[in-house]
């Protein structure tokens, strides 16, 4: 599924903002059977920066928006 969970749009928009303030380009979609996964669609050349953000607490911040899991889309352009 993509963004059809309750409050999916609000959650993904706020998650996108969390990437933006760290200078990471990309998008966020709610995936999984109940929209429980925040899927970060980040260009591969920004993965290093994303890994740094993970160490800086990004996962916990995104989970607080109502996601159970935070994951990186391995084929962001696919």
């Amino acid at each position: 599924m993509t963004d059809t969970a309750p409050h999916g749009d609000a959650r993904t928009a706020r998650a996108r903002d969390l990437l933006g303030v760290r200078g990471i380009p990309g998008d966020v979609c709610a995936e999984g059977l109940q929209g429980e996964i925040a899927a970060l669609r980040v260009p591969a050349d920004s993965w290093k920066r994303t890994a740094d953000a993970v160490r800086d607490g990004l996962v916990d911040e995104v989970k607080r928006l109502g996601f159970r899991y935070v994951a990186l889309d391995l084929e962001p352009g696919g």
């Binding site: 995936e31 994303t50 993970v54 935070v70 994951a71 990186l72 889309d73 084929e75 696919g78």
Partner: peptide, 20 residues
């Protein structure tokens, strides 16, 4: 990443996500 995505998609998944 291409090989990982290919291996998992080959099992019938439409999208492959790496848990952070």
């Amino acid at each position: 990443r291409a090989e990982v995505a290919g291996a998992v998609r080959g099992a019938g998944f439409a999208r492959v996500l790496l848990d952070l």
